[in-house]
Design a protein around this nucleic acid. Structure first.
Lengths: 251, 251
DNA sequence: CCATCTGAAAGTGTCGACAATCCCGTTGAC
DNA sequence: GTCAACGGGATTGTCGACACTTTCAGATGG
């Protein structure tokens, strides 16, 4: 099974063109393993094992891992190996705050640059998400939500921003219970989506910024609330107020 | 000369502890070469040459380069080599916008979290920069300015944000005339600094965000103005209005 | 019974060599 | 004279092997 894997990947239909350099293929592939949870956060990455799995030598594997390290997905400890990063609650909060800032910028740019066609597409997304939400169809809601966010990033006209935002979203997968990350009430989330689109339609940059920013901050607070409740349930029911507040100033 | 270089670096006084893994040393070292302009933007990076220069084999060099690729400092083209990235004017604008969003967040966080000691330190920076500015002492103003910004990032309590911001600042070095990047009237810049600190002192998160954000946006506009003037001087003096506007909505 | 030493196994760090690819000046044909 | 095929040289891509470090289990001594 391992031997033909690489041959397949290098001519894979996914990226088809310019697949080049084994290392870059391996990078995506190892990232996939991490994102899928095959290699769990905190786990050590075994170079020999991966090399055997993909049927290559360790050279390209090491290069791929180094690239992932730059992306903040893994952490290398000299002579000990590289480990899949784990995000503490504090780091999750940090990432969410950065994400909020970036998404706020995306909103601002959308208000400035979105074409009427873009706004139509956004409306369409909203409608479809609303349908899925009222039908409680979680299965189709989640990918729609993802596509909605991705569309905003791609349409806002700042490729640097888009790349960075996506990298941060990926990082959130490294939080222990990543199932929670995508959580958050469908209805609430969609109400926020509607405001975002309204602000863009109105070409109000400040409003759009705030709406987009708040959307992420609210997601952060919903997540942190769940985490905190979870922790409190485990702890001895005494004075266990975790740490400081979590709203990064509500404007 | 090359043979002892690595031995020196690995026990260098700079990082002293846990220098480990040649690759990470080489990463900083190659980055230094790029930042210093020894390897110019757009130039190809020759693996053999670097290996000879540092007295190592190509393996660690390749790993270091892959890490730099992840950081957005170089760009790899399969079977052609890796090139030091060059930033177009458009990309510079993108990077500045992202920087502004990140710095705005730093300002917001400072307003929430800065200790009175932090504010004192900020005041001190302002005073020293003002002294340097009125003495027209550019040599000492620039590092102070850098340290001022670095302090804000470190004190705002979000390490993820700090790392990301610093990476973006580094990227700006890849713009052709990086001399312009640090430019911008001393006096104007310092007026903006004062407002930033005032907002933090007042614990006004929104004001602090806006002041920090505007500081970067203004720097962007100053740079773009110079670039545009430069371009206009070269072009035929006819209708040559470059491209769109540059203010990302002035609030 | 616990602490310490020791050595083998596992795994990372680095190297030199070979294969594949690309670049560029040259040759040849039309 | 221009264009296309064609090598030689340089450079990247990949591999297998060796050196060094860490880890862990078992032996040894208190």
């Amino acid at each position: 099974m391992p031997f033909t894997l690489i041959a397949m990947l290098r001519t894979a239909p996914s990226d088809s063109f310019r697949t080049g350099s084994l290392a870059s293929v391996l990078e995506t592939e190892i990232e996939r393993l991490i994102l899928a949870g095959t290699i769990q956060p905190g786990e050590r990455i075994n170079e020999n094992q991966l090399a055997a799995r993909f049927g290559t030598s360790r050279g390209p594997i090491r290069e791929a891992i180094r690239a992932l390290e730059g992306a903040g997905m893994v952490e290398a400890i000299p002579n000990r190996g590289v480990f899949v990063r784990t995000l503490s609650v504090g780091e999750v909060r940090e990432v969410y705050d950065v994400r909020a800032a970036l998404f706020g910028l995306a909103g601002r740019l959308m208000a400035d640059r979105a074409t009427s066609g873009d706004v139509e597409t956004l409306d369409d997304f909203i409608a479809r998400m609303e349908a899925a939400a009222s039908a409680l169809d979680f299965e189709s809601y989640y990918p729609l939500n993802l596509a909605f966010h991705a569309f905003i990033l791609d349409a806002c006209g700042n490729a640097t921003l888009a790349a960075e935002y996506k990298a941060f979203v990926k990082r959130l997968t490294l939080f222990r219970a990543r199932s929670l990350v995508q959580g958050g009430g469908l209805g609430v989330s969609n109400r926020e989506h509607r405001e975002m689109v309204e602000a863009v339609r109105a070409r109000d940059a400040q409003w759009a910024h705030d709406a987009h920013w708040r959307h992420v901050i609210n997601a952060k607070n919903r997540l942190l609330a769940v985490v905190r409740a979870e922790e409190a349930a485990v702890e001895v029911p005494s004075a266990g107020g975790t740490h400081g507040d979590d709203q990064t100033s509500g404007r």
